[in-house]
Amino acid sequence: MQLKTNNQSMLQKIAPFIGLILIIVIITALNPGFLSVSNLMNVLRQVSINALIAFGMTFVILTGGIDLSVGATLALTGAVTAGMMASGIDPIFAMLLGLLLGAVLGAINGFIIAKGKVAPFIATLATMTIYRGLTLVYTDGRPISGLGDSLTFQMLGKGYFLGIPVPVVTMIISFGVLYFILKKTTFGRRVYAVGGNEEASILSGINADRIKIYVYSLLGLLAALASLILTSRLNSAQPTAGEMFELDAIAAVVLGGTSLTGGRGWIVGTLIGALIIGVLNNGLNLIGVPSFFQQVVKGAVILLAVLLDRKKTA
């Protein structure tokens, strides 16, 4: 594999992978049941939602940005889509509109950040509150259910394709497409360029504002896709859905070795980061760690991984 865009050493790149293996080995030693096919499928399915968001977050972070509003975006798109479906609009049409809404919400973030020159952290902190508020207004604080029995919609969260859960298939396909975009397209290259040196990019004739709006839209779109999966799984849209999802996504990106200052990183790392978080969630349950204590362990592992990563870079 060609690994040059970010000029990190090979060792640095495979470190998250080694970490993942290590965690799996430890958990399996404590409970061999972890490695059963049904459990692994379970893990992957649980991972898929965070992974989709984290893929989008990778693009945003590569440009040197951050998006705290994804969880709220997920809730709002989920609620609106569910609302449309409950009111009898064609489910496929409703889902497409939901995806579009996600992209628009993301574009609004991008627009505020690029054209309004607002720091991404602040801009998305504000839109996070706004989007969450809109969700509560729209749903009146109550879940929306009675979404009908459209096969496509049901498959999205609960179906299997060749024995693999559809959310996992969705994740894998999205990964492939996004990997390709980052690696092979001018858009991907520009994402790295803007994050690496925005001024030099603009002076090279790159429209940095447009790139930023695009990456936030892409993230919004992926959050909406994740919301469809979640809504299908639960057969309802929850107004509180997606709370803290932004943090899991950011953790996955950082665990994968992408620099929070932008310009350096890769999406394969993000996938592994998301897997680490998913494996921990599942494994700590399996080996009987009390649920309150799980959070402590999870946080400690993230901290450890990032510290080790810094050591190597130094």
Binding site: N7, R189, Y192, A193
Partner: peptide
Amino acid sequence: KSEGLVVDFSVEENVSMTNF
């Protein structure tokens, strides 16, 4: 350094920046 190059990019990637 601040206006001409993306210093983390390879030489090739820098040359490409204006030539997509």
